[in-house]
């Protein structure tokens, strides 16, 4: 066991090689729950790939390829959860701030929500606030998840939180992504804003909030 390479490392190498079949197979055969797969395999692999870039061992192009392959594997893995949730726990919508391209985190969060029976919409990377507001107004989700990676977007994040929390139907705004690890992030949200610095934190929050949403959201 000691000599066995960690799964996330093997997975990272498959991503960098563009081998989506092997990568998907690894995830399929991991024999773990989704949260573990997202956190212990995918996230760790992507962090490691980020470090490789920092060490000048790979280029941005390699990173793009790895991201795409990881994205594909995630899509394929989480597809069965996408089925219509007839007895839904509530509606949740995810988006990345304008110019934000790091969308794997929100995609994992969305997959987790689908699996837990939420009606989920993933609006994806780089969504200008006006579109976010428009989508939110049309669909009226109970929860809106915002994702960003880089700290200099904090002021922009504040604008998103502010506008979305003030919508007439008062959605709960939650924040994730690398930015949520910044100790300053709390200053940019309101008292209602929930900030999760990990998928585990989101997972626990989803389980706790389940009851409440069912009471006021169910038929």
């Amino acid at each position: 066991m000691a000599v066995m390479t960690a799964k996330w490392k093997v997975f990272a190498d498959m991503l960098l090689n563009g081998d989506e079949q092997a990568a998907y197979q690894l995830v399929e055969e991991a024999d773990s729950d989704s949260l573990t797969i997202y956190v212990e395999i995918m996230t760790k692999a992507m962090q490691y790939i980020g470090e490789l870039w920092q060490k000048n061992r790979i280029t941005v192009a390699d990173e793009h390829l790895a991201t795409s392959v990881c994205d594909f594997v995630l899509s394929q893995y989480s597809f069965p959860f996408k089925r219509r949730n007839t007895f839904s726990k509530g509606k949740i919508m995810f988006l990345c701030l304008e110019e934000e391209q790091h969308m794997l985190g929100s995609k994992m969060a969305a997959a987790l929500c689908s699996e837990k029976g939420w009606k989920t919409r993933l609006l994806g990377a780089n969504l200008p606030l006006e579109y976010a507001l428009q989508q939110a107004a049309e669909w009226e989700p109970d929860v809106i998840g915002l994702s960003a990676a880089l700290s200099y977007r904090l002021p922009l994040l504040q604008g998103y939180i502010d506008s979305l929390e003030n919508l007439a139907f008062r959605p709960q705004v939650i924040v994730g992504g690398r930015i949520a690890g910044n100790y300053n992030v709390y200053k940019y949200g309101s008292e209602e804003t929930a900030i999760f610095d990990s998928l585990h934190a989101l997972d626990q929050w989803l389980d706790r909030s389940r009851g409440e949403v069912e009471i006021d959201g169910a038929s």
Binding site: V60, S68, K82, A125
Partner: peptide
């Protein structure tokens, strides 16, 4: 490169959805 990878991403998303 950024633009192309963005476009590729969109195409891939479409294909992926259709595929699934």
């Amino acid at each position: 490169m950024g633009m192309i990878s963005g476009q590729l991403q969109k195409l891939r998303d479409r294909l992926e959805d259709t595929d699934f």
